[in-house]
């Protein structure tokens, strides 16, 4: 067979392949899109109802987050955090253990205000550490304790590549993000150091639980190839 005949036969095969399958695949795309659209329409009343109650919940937590102290959600949250191992201590400092029953917390015997508001999901496709760029997912919240108000960001996941990501556990988020911020906010109260440590921990669990209630939208993680953004 000559080169020209070989190329012509190959091209005929390609055309035949496309004629056989392209239309069917396009039809499948259309059918799937229609089904997703129908499902979304059916889902809408449920989403609306959830949004309505979430709004009430947000309003309540923005006034007084202590309302969660006797909730089953907080007990479940404490149990879930405690499934993750505590931080490794390098100086033999004893780990402060949280009481699984919030009714016995020191916080119940202190009457300062605690509230949380303005939960905003955050995505940064241009994040970077010392060595690599990546995408971070997290949120920003505003917290009030007594007469102190502070906003801070929490990163819950770093996506380095389609096959590599790093998630932070609930315990890491509570211990590394909430506790230091709350500890700083408690300083003006001039508490004894052990009392401050205990209250920081209890408030971190309480507010960490509240955040999870506010974040009902699941995170859709995606990875962007940085090179796609370079204009060449």
């Amino acid at each position: 067979m000559t080169q020209t005949a070989l190329l012509a036969s190959y091209e005929a095969l390609v055309q035949n392949h496309q004629a056989q399958f392209n239309g069917r695949i396009e039809q499948l795309h259309r059918t799937v899109n229609q089904m997703v659209s129908q499902l979304q329409q059916q889902e809408q009343p449920f989403v609306m109802a959830q949004a309505q109650f979430l709004e009430q919940l947000r309003a309540q937590l923005a006034i007084d987050t202590r309302c969660l102290l006797d909730s089953i959600e907080l007990r479940d949250f404490i149990a879930e955090v405690n499934t993750f191992p505590p931080r490794q201590r390098w100086n033999a400092e004893p780990v402060l253990e949280i009481d699984a029953d919030p009714a016995r917390w020191l916080l119940t015997r202190r009457d300062f205000a605690v509230s949380i508001r303005d939960y905003v999901p955050e995505v940064d496709h241009h994040a970077y550490d010392d060595e690599r760029t990546h995408t971070t997912y997290g949120y920003r919240i505003t917290i009030t304790i007594h007469d102190q108000t502070d906003s801070f960001s929490v990163i819950v996941q770093r996506v380095y590549s389609p096959i590599e990501q790093r998630s932070y556990t609930l315990r890491q988020i509570v211990e590394y993000d909430f506790e230091p911020e709350i500890g700083t906010m408690l300083k003006p109260l001039a508490l004894e150091s052990n009392e401050q440590a205990q209250l920081s921990q209890e408030l971190s669990y309480l507010l960490g639980c509240a955040v999870r209630l506010l974040a009902i939208t699941p995170i859709s993680v995606q990875f962007r190839y940085p090179i796609e953004e370079a204009v060449r």
Partner: peptide, 8 residues
């Protein structure tokens, strides 16, 4: 160092 966005 690392950090800036690549550009043409």
């Amino acid at each position: 160092a690392i950090g800036v966005k690549p550009s043409a």
